[in-house]
Amino acid sequence: MSNANNENTVSESTQIDRKHYGPTFPILLGALGAWTLYLSAQLPDFIQRGRQLPGPRYFPTILGIFFCVAAVVELVRYLRQRRNRTVPAPSIRQRAFAVMQDWGSHSVVLILASLIVFVPLIRYVGFIAGGIVFSALVMLRLRAKWYNAIILSVVVVLVIAVVFGMLFRVPLPRGAFGIAL
């Protein structure tokens, strides 16, 4: 409990600076804008009866420009806020720690990674076997008791298989071995 409190205070002190006007957001936004503009430039014109009309690139180009402008605005906001800061700026280490906290230490990356692995898994061993393994592992990672994890996983996966597979006739993956298990 005290550990959790401790973590909270750490994240709070760095959160406001990093969260609202961190430099990554404007940078990402600018990159998105530039990328959009670059890709849109390769789209063809649309000419009908000799007249150029808004074509495939019309909308994406407008959006690309908007993202670039928005990136500048966000950057200015960030810089202005940095100048007016009363507390000392978080160090690189603090910032990295905060990002790790968002993404790493608390299962987020693990959940994402297991989801990504989940797709090939159910393709090869079928939904039921793959689903049970996936769900049990993730539940364990989320601090469930192991017997709970296994029982719940089996029940939930079977329920899903019945609802989707039988009631709604969704062809759930049966695995490379062609069995429903």
Partner: peptide, 23 residues
């Protein structure tokens, strides 16, 4: 805990393999 789940996973895989091999 992880060990148990891994064992269960391997069992399931083997089972599906057997059914496949028979068919």
């Amino acid at each position: 805990r992880v060990l148990i789940v891994v064992v269960v996973a391997i069992l399931l895989l083997v089972m599906s393999g057997i059914v496949w091999a028979r068919g």
